[in-house]
Design a protein around this nucleic acid. Structure first.
Lengths: 190, 190
DNA sequence: TGAATTTCTTAAGCCAGTTTAATTTTTAGT
DNA sequence: ACTAAAAATTAAACTGGCTTAAGAAATTCA
């Protein structure tokens, strides 16, 4: 139930069997069905989530009452509302399974305790956060230099499997355009 | 020349005097004059930069030939092109001092070596990266839920001192709007 | 302190992307 | 397989924010 995570950690730091057992004590694994929510607006995001299998989305409800997706998380990705997670403040987000999924969840307090008991993990999480920053920076660069049309084309060619896996209106939401306009773009270029 | 950084690190982890000396071996300090560039497009961003004093901006040149600012860094902030830094790939960015500034720079290789010699620092950098992720997430949330007008008002009320310190056209660029439109907004609401 | 350069403003015309609303297609549950 | 619900399409009218162009104001530095 947490093979993928252990495997990923071991790419960065050594963990022997007994350390894996310790690790296991601090995390929870969960099976989610499609549409199941693991975070709701106004609640504190108490967990860091790792997707073992499946796909999650993070979204907020905007003033117009529409769902605005800000992030997806596929197998092997981490997802959380980091501000809420770090400061125990209520979140504005929802996190929901798009497909049946398996996740590993680490609670706030346990995260601190885990890093004290297995300080080697600091390095793993430092690198994972570093990659997240790089990713965010890259994404914001794309937003700055591309039109929505170009952004859509970029996304489509970068993640073709993802296009198949996720409903179109969610992709539209993530890309920050209306389903109607996305439909128009699809008609235009194949 | 690196007091602020040491002070900031010590808020998170203990560092005795001799460890500070070790730290010092792995970093370089630099004084920058206004408009001095420390990263140019097509070069690898070999450093992680910490601003001791002053103000930097990070920007790229878009297709139309205009400078697009993607980040500012004030006293006490870190800045880098993380993708370039981690993968030794050429950057698309420029990083430039807006004011006379003092910075601490850590080179790639030294960063790795430093973290091996002083592994306590993993925690400091994990937390600093975690905050960067939280910041990026917050910023992207604002972009998703606000119009450009609202984004401008938000920025203006959140960082009033900053508005004074930096030319308006740079703020416009950072906010992703034209100087002309910013000017129009300023006229509208005081 | 004056000339050059950089920054800011104004206003009109324009377009990428939204809104609205109605129709069709696909998906999921029984 | 049938029905209800969810998702995708179409098209027309509309708008937030951009472009262009020209002038005014503020900085910079010799």
């Amino acid at each position: 139930m947490l093979n993928k995570l252990i495997q990923q950690v071991r790419k960065v730091v050594d963990l022997n069997e007994s350390e894996v057992v310790v690790f296991t004590k601090y995390v929870e694994t969960q099976r989610l069905k499609k549409k199941q929510l693991i975070l709701q607006s106004d609640k504190v995001c108490k967990y860091l989530y790792f997707v073992e299998k499946g796909c999650l989305r993070m979204y907020l409800i905007n003033k117009k009452g529409a769902e605005q997706i800000t992030q997806f998380a596929l197998d092997g990705w981490w997802i959380s509302d980091y501000q809420s997670f770090m400061n125990f403040t209520p979140s504005d987000y929802y996190i929901q399974a798009i497909e049946e999924s398996e996740i590993v969840a680490i609670e706030n307090q346990n995260f601190e305790a885990l890093l004290i008991e297995l300080p080697q993990l600091e390095k793993y999480f430092r690198i994972m956060m570093q990659k997240a920053v790089a990713g965010a920076q890259f994404r914001s660069k794309l937003l700055y230099e591309m039109s929505k049309e170009e952004f859509y084309i970029h996304f489509k060619t970068s993640f073709p499997e993802f296009m198949m896996r996720v409903p179109q209106y969610m992709i539209a939401s993530y890309l920050g355009l209306t389903p109607e306009y996305l439909s128009e773009l699809r008609k235009k270029k194949l």
